[in-house]
């Protein structure tokens, strides 16, 4: 049963075709990695699925519901959470508030102006628990805009995973982290997405082969292969297009 299904999705910016008739099915519970060279359209694909961009043509279904014309907040409410490649947090709010805001909707608070947050102990405990998981508990009251790069990345990840959405999409979640930071983030991602669906863009092949059940290779707006990691590794066409560069340059 596929939780997410794209059919002939196309995206143009003016004259330029960035996503060129892309189809993809992701099964519920699957850990799906998307790899491909810089500028291939991986982030654009994420933006299309999450509603930041409107598709030029084609359809996107999430849990059998067409979402290609929905605004991001409606898609998020259906149970899709995402992180961004370029850190995208609430810089003037403290770390704790960042995470707590990410929890509001899924905890049913909606636009409430009658719940006093100080009294919502379950919500607050949960926010603290997320902070603990992403290793920012001792920075809870720190203004998030003043965190260092790696900690902002951890927070970025935290906002995406906090609500416990069914489908979590992470755009290069560990880029720029040190090896050990990346390692613990990957552990966390694995733990948090247990029983959930994950779609992840990642350049580090070790992480990709480690985490993914299936891998899609995106080149110039087209998926040239979707397969199990071992088959992708073996796929020559892929090696040429992408892995070749990485493996030889690494």
């Amino acid at each position: 049963m596929s939780i997410l299904s794209l059919k002939d999705v196309q995206k143009n910016f003016g004259e330029t075709e960035i996503i060129r008739g892309l189809s993809l099915d992701v099964a519920a519970g699957e850990k799906h990695a998307i790899i491909g060279p810089n500028g291939a359209g991986k982030s654009t694909l994420f933006h299309l699925i999450s509603g930041r961009y409107k598709v030029s043509s084609g359809s996107i279904k999430f849990k059998q519901e067409e979402i290609q014309n929905k605004p991001p907040y409606e898609i998020a409410r259906l149970g899709l959470a995402r992180s961004f490649q370029v850190t995208n947090i609430f810089p003037r709010m403290n770390v704790f508030e960042n995470i707590r805001c990410a929890l509001f909707w899924s905890k049913g608070y909606r636009y409430s102006f009658w719940h006093l947050l100080g009294r919502q102990s379950e919500l607050n405990d949960e926010a603290m628990h997320v902070l603990e998981q992403i290793g920012l508990k001792d920075k809870a009251l720190y203004p998030s805009g003043e965190l260092g790069y790696a900690q902002q990345r951890a927070l970025e990840l935290g906002i995406a995973i906090a609500s416990g959405a069914e489908l979590i999409m992470l755009d290069e979640p560990v880029a720029g982290m040190s090896h050990s930071e990346a390692q613990s983030s990957v552990e966390l991602i694995r733990k948090i997405t247990e029983g959930k669906t994950l779609i992840m863009v990642e350049h580090d092949m070790n992480i990709v082969f480690d985490v993914a059940d299936r891998i899609s290779v995106l080149v110039y707006g087209e998926i040239i292969a979707t397969d199990k990691p071992e088959n992708i590794r073996a796929n020559l066409k892929v090696q040429e297009a992408y892995l070749g560069e990485v493996i030889t340059s690494a």
Partner: peptide, 9 residues
């Protein structure tokens, strides 16, 4: 922008 991705218009 980010607010919309955590469910809020």
């Amino acid at each position: 922008e980010r607010a919309e991705f955590i469910g809020y218009s």
